[in-house]
């Protein structure tokens, strides 16, 4: 079952299903290692703040608005 990245709870793992957004965002996210099938860990997800995810050994801060373009599947 897939959900928005912004709905993934803290400390949970997820696998990226798809990413949508502006070309600029896609380029940047791709270069940071956020591509489909990448496993991520939600590190911090608080309202009125960018979210923090951990992927490919990197802690990445993501704008809340743009992270809504990322769909993930929960992984145990």
């Amino acid at each position: 079952m897939s959900t928005l990245l912004t709905e993934l709870n803290e400390k949970r793992y997820g696998k990226i299903i798809s990413i949508e957004g502006s070309q600029r965002f896609l380029d940047r996210a791709g270069a940071m290692g956020l591509t489909p099938n990448t496993e991520i860990q939600m590190v911090q997800n608080k309202k009125r703040q960018p979210i923090l995810v951990y992927a490919r050994d990197t802690l990445i801060a993501l704008n809340r608005k743009e992270s809504k373009g990322i769909m993930v599947k929960g992984v145990e």
Binding site: R28, M32, L59, E66
Partner: peptide
Amino acid sequence: FQGLVMELPP
């Protein structure tokens, strides 16, 4: 300018 997509280095 673009929305924040930034690495937080350890």
